[in-house]
């Protein structure tokens, strides 16, 4: 058990805030269910206005962390601070600053869209309910559906209702648990655009186990596995850090010897893929395609195909969470 230093931490936060306001600050957060540690001693900070992707395989502790940040369950030890307020000491204040879309997006299916948003606005103590609700309906593109029952809506539209509900009180921090799971590719695109738009002015913490999602939407990714953080960096850095080698697959029309290929500058390893196809390994990829093309011209070879495969975040994810 870690001792609780709620006030002390708050003080050092305020001095930090002058430089860079923090929206979320998590210190040595742990959650234990019985014997099992769902979240084990994680610490991270999210400055205001950042869109952070919370990544991990199923059961890694993403949802548990989010539930603690939204005051649904208390941490076993450690502290979570949202906008300078402790989630346990100032629970109600934190809840009013956070918009939350839980996993599986629970909604009252027998309520009408507008009725539900009215309810969400009132429960969040929004002042001008009517204006705010019609504003949210417009932003989330629910205008045509607002008189329908939520139970009649498709999954994509329900997700929009969930997002509208989470943003209705104009929260500073948005916590979205798997906002695009179970949607079709078009709907995913729409929801991503929506989140990107929101992300311009709010701090967003979204969880997912889909890599492309993070590459498409987030400034930064926190990868979590078995309750601990295994990587935390900008999406670009994260991709570069693990990019140890790139592989170019080339195909020539005529036969070529392996020794000759090995002499191309920058190539470290050559392996045959059959049918005059070769996999050329290299430490970096700068000017690689150019030198391969030059090699083909010099040796009177016809280059049929040249494909560069870079390591994607997907690979990073796989290698970190294995």
């Amino acid at each position: 058990m870690y001792p609780r230093f709620g006030h002390k931490f708050k003080n050092c936060l305020t001095s930090q805030q002058k430089i860079k306001p923090l929206s979320i600050s998590v210190q040595q957060l742990t959650k234990t269910y019985g014997q099992q540690k769902a979240v084990n001693d994680i610490s991270f900070e999210v400055p205001a206005g950042q869109v952070v992707g919370f990544l991990g395989p199923n059961g890694a502790g993403k949802t548990t962390t989010m539930k603690m940040l939204t005051c649904f369950i208390p941490p076993t030890s450690g502290i979570a601070i949202v906008c300078g307020l402790d989630v346990e000491e100032n629970s109600v204040e934190v809840r009013s600053l956070v918009g939350y879309l839980p996993e599986h997006n629970p909604l009252y299916l027998d309520m009408y869209v507008k009725e539900y948003l009215d309810f969400a606005a009132e429960i969040n103590k929004v002042k001008n309910v009517k204006e705010r609700v019609s504003e949210m309906i417009e932003i989330t593109g629910l205008t045509l559906e607002k008189r329908k029952k939520i139970g009649q809506l498709s999954k994509g539209y329900r997700q929009r209702v969930g997002l509208a509900q989470a943003m209705i009180h104009n929260p500073k921090v948005l916590i979205l648990d798997e906002p695009t799971s179970g949607l079709d590719p078009n709907q995913i695109g729409e929801i991503r655009n929506l989140i990107r738009t929101i992300g311009k002015e709010k701090t967003v913490l979204l969880s997912t186990h889909i890599m492309q999602e993070v590459e498409a939407m987030c400034d930064r990714a926190i990868i979590i596995n078995r309750g601990t953080i295994v990587a935390d960096d900008n999406t670009a850095n994260l991709r570069n850090s693990l990019k140890t080698e790139s592989v170019i697959t080339v195909q020539f029309k005529n036969a070529v010897s392996e020794d000759k290929l090995r002499k191309i500058p920058g190539i470290t390893k050559v392996s045959s893929a059959g049918d005059n196809r070769w996999n050329l390994h290299s430490a970096g990829n700068e000017g690689l395609q150019e030198s391969i093309f030059k090699f083909a011209v010099d040796n009177n070879l016809v280059l049929l195909e040249s494909k560069l495969s870079e390591s994607s975040l997907e690979d990073v994810f796989k290698s970190l969470t294995r």
Partner: peptide
């Protein structure tokens, strides 16, 4: 059962 319990209890209401 439907999970709305979670949305309800994470709103600023006692």
């Amino acid at each position: 059962k439907t999970g709305t319990f979670e949305t309800l209890t994470t709103r600023p209401i006692s």
